[in-house]
């Protein structure tokens, strides 16, 4: 199908880092079933390094591929690098997404941020609330 790039299809067919981390240090879930996509990210963090990351996704091909690519991009990285991961970077790493599928990469970025927020909160780490999207007041479908 020409809808997606080879990279998207590769990550969709052979998703990296699928699964669950028991006793994860941070968990983030975004999206809702009504909109047709949910992403859940699990992080294992040691000395500010993401030593392991897993995901579960309910959604279309590009949602699964975006989750897979995003987890690859933050694995082994410092949490500040993960915080700076943008949806645009995820989409570019996938050699682009169709315009109406860009929200899938947004979900991946949001899921990672939410998992990091969970980690900060659990560990009483002071964080800058401005960098986290306020999902309640946002009309976008990714808000849960």
């Amino acid at each position: 199908m020409a809808l997606y790039s080879e990279k998207v299809m590769d990550h969709f067919r052979n998703p990296r880092n699928v699964g669950v981390i028991e006793n994860a240090d941070g968990i983030g879930e975004v999206g809702n079933a009504k909109c047709g996509d949910i992403m859940k990210i699990y992080l294992k963090i040691e000395n500010d390094i993401i030593v392991d990351v897993k995901f579960e996704t309910f959604g279309c091909g590009s949602a699964i591929a975006s989750s897979s690519m995003a987890t690859e991009m933050i694995k082994g990285k410092h949490i500040s690098d993960a915080m700076n991961l943008t949806n645009k970077a995820v989409a570019e790493a996938l050699d682009g997404l169709p315009a109406h599928k860009m929200h899938c990469s947004v979900l991946a970025e949001e899921a990672i941020k939410k998992a990091l927020l969970d980690y900060y909160k659990k560990n009483y780490i002071v964080y800058d609330s401005n960098v986290f999207h306020d999902c309640e007041s946002c009309g976008h479908c990714c808000g849960d």
């Binding site: 199908m1 969709f12 279309c60 699964i64």
Partner: peptide, 14 residues
């Protein structure tokens, strides 16, 4: 229940 149609179609196409 619990899955999304587009990914179902793409994998069936494979």
């Amino acid at each position: 229940e619990g899955i999304e149609g587009e990914s179902l179609l793409l994998l069936l196409d494979d």
